[in-house]
Amino acid sequence: MKIQHQWVAFYTILRKEVTRFLRIWVQTLIPPVITMGLYFVIFGHLIGERIGQMGGFDYMSFVVPGLVMMAVINNSYANVVSSFFSAKFHRSIEELLVSPTPSHIILLGYVAGGILRGLAVGAIVTFVSTFFTNFIIENPLLTILVIFLTSALFSVAGLINAIFANSFDDISIIPTFLLTPLTYFGGVFYSISLLPEFWQGVSQLNPILYMVNAFRFGFLGVSDVNVGLAIGGIAGMLVIAYIFAWYLLHKGRKLRS
């Protein structure tokens, strides 16, 4: 397939994905805003005022980057896992499988869709947070780089989950039992410097800690982890996950009989 034809195929998948999440905006764009708005009110405003400072900032400013990152992670993952699994379940994925679209374009198209939803939700949540606190983004380029890499990583992870899933239950197991606990223990609401040394060490095994802190560093200029190591780690995981997802698609694992 020529490069210009691949571009058309990529654009078609991306357009289809964006149309899908915009068509069901009440399910895709509004719930994260409501949830994060509640976090801002309860944790940031009501409880946060009693907590005082965290990492040198008032608590509301401290939690905003973590909550934005949490929304981006959840929505990038949810977009791809539900869209790809639905296509598999209804067999409309065959529209792509019978076409000459190469596996890497299918992967890129779905991941780009997940990134766009993640970024859209991230932008809306950031906008909502401005009603609760004032902040200046310290390092916009770093912030964009971290959010882009993280949403790409979780979009790819969502696609891998969808490939292996046999039922709709299977696509909710990872978010419920893995992503949510890792995110909550990933330094969204607190600095790990508050934890005893042992639990600080355990927390450092949590990849989401690095994403949240790298993003917070871009926002506020403070981090519990080495930011260079964090970005390198996210990029490394993205490359590995991407190659694995491409391999699964190329081999037609759970897609071709």
Binding site: H5, A9, H90, E95, L96
Partner: peptide, 27 residues
């Protein structure tokens, strides 16, 4: 194919146009 294999939520025109896109046909 023998079985219906399109997304029932998509519009008729979208389904056909998207399929052309998967073959690299400009929109």
């Amino acid at each position: 194919p023998q079985e219906f294999n399109f997304s029932v939520f998509e519009k008729v025109q979208q389904i056909v146009v998207n399929q052309a896109g998967f073959y690299g046909v400009p929109r």
